[in-house]
Design a protein around this nucleic acid. Structure first.
Lengths: 144, 144
DNA sequence: TCAATAAAAGATAAAAAAGTCTTTTATTGT
DNA sequence: ACAATAAAAGACTTTTTTATCTTTTATTGA
C-alpha cells in the first residue's frame, strides 16, 4: 500500500503531533524509538517532512521536531503520503496501465476506482490531529 | 498496491484466459506482447503461475499456456495475487505494525480494515472468466 | 567564545525487486 | 532417430528501496 518510508513518515508525524499536544518537542532518537524505525533512516525521512513543511524542525540543544496544534488540525494524512510516495496511490492504475481511463479501461478499472476513491477520501479527510488524539489517549499504538 | 510481478501475472492470466475462450494456446512471446512486459521476466512469472496450477503449461511445438474454461470459472484473482505477493494485501497493517489488531490497533486500524475488506471481496469474488470476457469482447484493455 | 547538542547534508552500503541470458528438459512432426 | 520448438531451470545483472556512516551547519547556554 505505502512504501516503508511512507509508513515511517506517517507514524513519525502522528507521534510528533501527539507529543506536540502536550508541548513536547521530540528528537530523532525519540521518534525512532517510538515508532520502531532505524534512527539514521528516520533522520532522512524527517528532512523530507521538514522540507515539505509538514513538521517544524529546530536545530541545537533542546531542538527537535514539532507540529503546532493549529497546523496539525489542517494537515491531512494525504499531504504526508504525497510528500513520500507521490500521488500514485491516488491516481495510478491497479494493473499498471499508463493510460487507464474510461476510454481505455483495464479489466478492473471501475472496481479499483471505487477503492482508490475510498482511500483518497480517508487520507484527504483525516488530519494529524484526528489520529494524534487517539494515540495521546492510549487508544491506539505505533509499535508491535 | 501490487508488485510489478503481480501486475504482470494478473494481466497474463486475463490474456491467457481470453485466448483460451477461443481455444487458443499462447506462448511467452505472445503474452509479453499482449501485456507489454519484458519477455524473459514474463517467462519467470509463468513458471510460478504454472507451479501454482493457475495456468496449464505445455512444452514443445505448439506448446504454450492455457486455462480451461471450467478452470477459469473457478479461479479467483485472489489466487493469482496470493501466488505472487503472498497475502500481505489481505492481512497486513497499513502502517506496518506486526501485531495490529483490535487489542493493539494502529491509528488507522478500523479505516484500513474496511478498505482491506473491500479489496479482499473484489479479489475473492472475481474469477478469471469474469474479467476475460470483457477483454475478449474488446471492452477492456491490458496495454497503454 | 566555546563546548555541547541536534538536525541537515552528503556519500556509501546492503537488501530486495525487477529484469536478462544461457543451458536443460519435454514434446512434436518428419 | 532427430531437428525444431517452447517452456523450465539456473546463474547473473541492473535498478530501486531501505538503511548506515561521516561531516557540516545551526543553536544554545555556560
Amino acid at each position: 500500500m505505502f512504501s516503508k518510508t511512507c509508513e515511517y513518515a506517517i507514524k513519525a508525524c502522528i507521534y510528533i503531533a501527539s507529543q506536540s499536544l502536550v508541548q513536547k518537542r521530540v528528537g530523532i532518537k525519540d521518534i525512532a524509538q517510538a515508532i520502531e524505525s532505524p534512527e539514521a533512516f528516520t533522520g532522512k525521512i524527517m528532512q523530507v517532512l521538514s522540507k515539505n513543511h509538514i513538521v517544524d524542525s529546530v536545530k541545537g540543544p533542546h531542538g527537535g521536531f514539532e507540529i503546532p496544534e493549529s497546523a496539525m488540525k489542517e494537515k491531512k494524512l494525504a499531504e504526508v503520503v504525497r510528500a513520500m510516495d507521490g500521488d500514485d496511490i491516488f491516481k495510478s492504475c491497479g494493473l499498471g496501465l499508463k493510460e487507464c481511463s474510461g476510454a481505455n479501461p483495464c479489466p478492473l478499472h471501475r472496481q479499483f476506482a471505487k477503492i482508490r476513491a475510498d482511500i483518497t477520501k480517508l487520507l484527504e479527510t483525516t488530519t494529524l490531529f484526528d489520529v494524534a488524539t487517539g494515540l495521546a489517549d492510549g487508544l491506539t499504538f505505533l509499535k508491535r
